[in-house]
Design a binder for these strands. Structure first.
Length: 937
RNA sequence: GCUCGAGUGGUGGAAUUGGUAGACACGUUGGACUUAAAAUCCAAUGACCAUUGCGGUCGUGCGGGUUCAAGUCCCGCCUCGAGUACCA
């Protein structure tokens, strides 16, 4: 009997699916364990070997926990709204739903081949209206909620409205837009519906406002901050400009502090927590008000260094600052206008590239120092960002390098506020050990004392107050796209009105074209049936909008992260038609116990999910305010790209060794055309792409050698390795084990099949413990002490290693175990049976097959994981009672060939050891080559 | 610039709490079986010196330190990777 993986794997995949072996039940007496993968976007390219890495690891955990007696929820689904399907639709006219359906089918086939233990009965697709109905429902819940800053929680907006009716908004501590007006109850009660709604929009957690957004002309849509990398769009790398638009946003900023503090309570990778902390960007400091000379307006600045207040020699405003227009003097008007035009003509990218150029302009206005009453010139400078802090800074050249450079460049005064520090060359930016001078009542104080003192003085005189500022901005929620969740809102008198819950889902309408309309409206502007009939509560044609009860529906759709911000809760009760998940299901599953996915989602999906979780928790819909207790980032599997070198301007390709002096362009070729010694198969290249059909290849030593480089795996780089190929040649179990064997799960690593035979050989060797010379040879003889020792060593190691997610060392342990058992010629079922259970999370088909051949009729998937028996390892260990000087007694458990007298002798003679012994009663004795090296107390 | 992480044989990587560095695998070399190949099995494999045998010296990016003992802890550097970037 050979190890026929093809047949075995197919057989068990069918068996698991037919018997719904991995279906999870919501009512179980077993303890629950929820293992989740980040669901994939089903792209047209299919899965490559990098995708399954995390799925394999989480599948091992899921299977391991089943063996340990847990009721395991291990679901999978698709994040199926997104840009590629829409762009394909624009090019071909094919409806994105169709493309998506095809891609999902392909993904499913590939996933099934790898033997994952998913409960497919709970599959979700974000683009399915049965699913996005609840995404829309959450949108409405947040629309109808506000943030109470006293209780630090979200509440239904109805509570805010009754506050307003009772006492206006003077006392209410609710998070709202900066320019929200104040009113009394009697004023509120006289407001019209429209006026009331306008005010409420300033409080709602999903709200409509005109804001400056990042507009991507190439993609024709706005982008949130997390969708921008290095000043260009994450998708496609297109440039961006700033644009003022009326947009939906999500009020994440009041949650900033909870999002920060919640990180301490979850077991997530430190690096990922750090990324989120930086993104949230908490800074502690003070807000200070400066009167503008000759104006009523006060200029508000935020600073983390209020201790440097007496070093302020000028102020700088962002070019977009609202005071710029009103305070600029007539002499400076022209220059200021020119400067603003010049700045705004630059794209974000150019602005960032210009970082070293200092630019700015004087407004002609002066601010008044709150304590010294000195007149301080007010400048405008590009380096001040409009959307951080108050968009204005107090400049302290002696304490901040940028301010120093700016002051030098424009010849502005510099006051040295540091006693005994030379600031002729650069600013003094440290916070330590230096006393302040030229600082009035702060003279002689150091950093920490000075901060305390100045804040209390500011507050006493009403010149400012201690303040905390966050970098985190509210998240823009509108996208000018077709393939996304429709926003369940219609517009009456320009104001948004929600479509009632009972009328959800608001289904995505059919359109002829997926591009924006000719007058620049989003693609949904092409829909004929996209108006809301308020009386009959249904979608009707836009041609009926003249009718008094028929209104236009919102044309924007939701961003990609909407559907993925709560899917983990839907899995708990995926088929529920009445609720997004039943209370019982939520009470039972609570939160994700193990979440596996990439760290690239740190500032997007993972932050937004935590935000929605907290909001829905506050509103009473969820049990936990963090959705995932433990999160692990699997590393990326990188591709090993292959290059050929075209001599510039010719059709001649040079082998790598010949390149040296020539100017060449490297061009990607498919990695499947290259063998393991980097030799290119020239005939295959010629038929692979037309471009290569007739070109000249110049060889070295009769071979064409390609260049190699490790890069991200992607179709365009032709370095993709399809897991199907590996399954065909080696089988899914080998693929699963090999991917785990490659290295630590959290580490990035290039794909390389060089070592795969080692893992495959292991399975074949293991198989031979059961079959030899075509015969099944497992016997019922008593297991030898030696083989029991091997077994229990392996149980101990593998159990510990799974728990600390060290899967690569698990596999090493299996290899050692099988090598030893082969040497012992062990074929006892008492050894092999527990080993199969131990192996089954890693190589499930393999284990299942041999398990059934051992005569078991039930699946191996729920067998109890073997327990480690320490006595099996200690059979040769002697237990020495030792006393020393009649005082210290300890037991020595060592498998060494030393007599009690010899040990005593050594303890006596070794001075160093004796000094160690004075510390207390010893627990462990370190013996190296028969000598006592150390005694741990 | 700032923050975080990492540097171990020819290669991927082990070493869990400071305790015999290099487990396991790939690769390479030699051998067995074979007409031959494949498959399989056995042996060697950090470097250097000594090899008739025993063995010895050095060795975890670099330079210091703590310790009986350092890949692991501390101080100062170098290199690479990731995140972020005029954040006041």
């Amino acid at each position: 009997m050979e190890y026929n993986f093809q047949q075995i794997e197919k057989k068990w995949q069918i068996f698991w699916a037919r018997n719904q072996v991995f279906k999870a039940y919501n009512n179980s007496k077993k303890p629950k364990f929820y293992v989740l993968d980040m669901f994939p976007y089903p792209s047209g390219a299919g899965l490559h070997v990098g995708h399954p890495l995390g799925y394999i690891a989480s599948d091992i955990i899921a299977r391991f926990k089943r063996h340990k007696g847990f009721n395991v929820l291990h679901p999978q689904g698709y994040d199926s709204f997104g840009l590629p399907a829409e762009q394909f639709a624009i090019q071909t006219g094919q409806h994105p739903a169709k493309t998506t359906e095809t891609n999902i089918k392909r993904y499913r086939e590939q996933l099934d081949r790898m033997g994952f233990s998913f409960d497919w009965s709970r599959e979700v697709r974000t683009s399915d209206s049965k699913y996005y109905r609840w995404t829309q429902w959450i949108f409405l819940k947040l629309f109808n909620a506000y943030y109470n800053t006293d209780k630090d929680m979200a509440f239904p907006i109805s509570e805010l409205i009754s506050d307003f009716e009772r006492e206006g908004n003077y006392k209410t501590n609710a998070h709202c837009d900066a320019e929200t007006p104040l009113f009394h109850a009697n004023q509120w009660n006289t407001f019209s519906e429209v006026e009331k709604e306008k005010i409420l929009l300033k409080y709602r957690l999903t709200y409509l406002s005109e804001t400056q957004v990042n507009w991507c002309p190439a993609l024709g849509t706005v982008l949130a901050n997390d969708e921008i990398i290095n000043g260009v769009s994450e998708r496609g790398g297109h440039p961006l400009t700033k644009k003022r638009m009326t947009q939906w946003s999500m009020r994440i900023s009041p949650f900033a502090n909870r999002l920060l503090e919640g990180l301490d309570l979850v077991d997530w990778p430190d690096s990922l927590k750090e990324i989120q902390r930086n993104w949230i960007g908490k800074s502690i400091g003070a807000t200070i008000f400066f009167q503008i000379k000759g104006h009523k307006n006060k200029l508000e600045v935020f600073t983390t260094r209020p201790d440097t207040l007496f070093g302020v020699t000028y102020m700088t405003l962002a070019p977009e600052h609202e005071l710029v227009k009103s305070i600029t003097t007539s002499e400076q008007e022209k220059a200021v206008e020119d400067y603003i035009v010049q700045v705004s003509s630059k794209s974000d990218r150019e602005r960032q590239a210009d970082i070293k150029n200092i630019s700015g302009i004087f407004t002609g206005a002066y601010a008044i120092h709150p304590f010294t009453k000195a007149e301080i010139p007010v400048w405008i400078g590009e380096y001040v960002l409009a959307d951080y802090g108050t968009g204005a800074v107090m400049a302290v050249p002696s304490g901040d390098q940028r301010d120093f450079d700016f002051a030098r460049y424009f010849n502005l005064p510099i006051i040295n506020i540091y006693d005994g520090v030379d600031i002729s060359k650069r600013a003094f930016v440290e916070k330590g050990n230096v006393k302040l001078t030229n600082s009035s009542f702060l003279n002689g104080l150091e950093y920490a004392e000075a901060i305390q003192k100045i804040i209390s003085e500011l507050e006493e005189n009403n010149f400012g107050r201690g303040a905390i500022n966050f970098r985190l901005r509210d998240a823009i929620f509108s996208r000018q796209r077709y393939w996304g969740e429709p926003i369940p809102i219609y517009f009456k008198s320009e104001l948004p009105y929600p479509i009632a819950e009972k009328n959800l889902p608001l289904e995505l309408p059919q359109v002829d074209k997926y591009l924006p309309t000719s007058d620049g409206k989003p693609p949904l502007g092409n829909a004929k049936n996209w108006a809301w009939d308020e009386v009959n509560e249904k979608v009707v044609g836009v041609d009926q909008i003249n009718n008094k009860t028929i209104f236009p529906i919102e044309l924007n759709t939701m961003p990609g992260w909407a559907g993925s911000s709560w899917y983990f809760n839907r899995y708990m009760d995926a088929i529920n038609q009445e609720q997004f998940a039943s209370k019982e299901a939520i009470d039972y599953w609570k939160e994700v116990d193990f979440y596996m996915g990439g760290s690239e989602h740190a500032t997007g999906h993972l932050l937004y999910s935590r935000f929605w979780q907290k909001a829905l928790f506050d509103l009473g819909y969820l049990k936990q305010d963090e959705f995932a207790n433990k999160l692990v980032n699997q590393g990326m599997i990188l591709g090993n790209s292959a290059f050929v070198y075209r001599k510039k301007g010719t059709q001649e390709f040079l082998s790598k060794g010949l390149v040296k002096k020539h100017e060449v362009e490297p061009i990607h070729v498919d990695v499947s055309l290259v063998n393991s010694s980097n030799e290119l198969d020239i005939n295959k290249v010629r038929s692979w792409q037309k471009d290569f059909e007739k070109v000249k290849f110049t060889l070295e030593d009769g071979k064409y050698i390609v260049g190699r480089e490790v890069e991200k795996m992607s179709k365009s780089k032709h370095n993709v390795v399809n897991p199907d190929e590996i399954c065909d040649t080696y089988g899914a179990d080998t693929l699963r084990m090999y991917e785990m064997f490659l290295g630590p799960i959290e580490q990035d690593k290039p794909w390389n099949t060089a070592g795969i035979s080692g893992v495959h050989n292991f399975l074949k060797k293991f198989w031979r413990l059961f079959y030899q010379n075509g015969k099944f040879k497992v016997d019922h003889e008593v297991a030898s002490d030696e083989s029991l020792k091997v077994l229990h060593q392996t149980i101990k190691k593998v159990t510990e290693d799974i728990e600390r997610l060290s899967f690569n060392t698990c596999i090493s342990s299996f290899m050692i175990c099988v090598n030893k058992l082969t040497a012992l010629n062990c074929s006892s079922h008492k050894i092999l049976e527990p080993l199969l259970i131990l192996l089954s999370p890693f190589a499930p088909h393999f284990s299942e097959e041999l398990w059934s051949r051992l005569g078991h009729t039930k699946t191996i998937a729920f067998e109890t994981f073997p327990k480690f028996d320490a006595s099996k390892l200690e059979e040769k260990v002697k237990d020495y009672p030792v006393s020393f000087n009649g005082k210290i007694r300890f037991r020595l458990k060592l498998s060494l060939e030393l007599s009690v007298d010899q040990i005593k002798e050594q303890v006596m003679n070794e001075e160093r050891t004796i000094s160690q012994l004075r510390g207390g009663s010893p627990k462990k004795i370190i013996v190296v080559q028969g000598k006592i090296i150390n005694i741990v107390t």
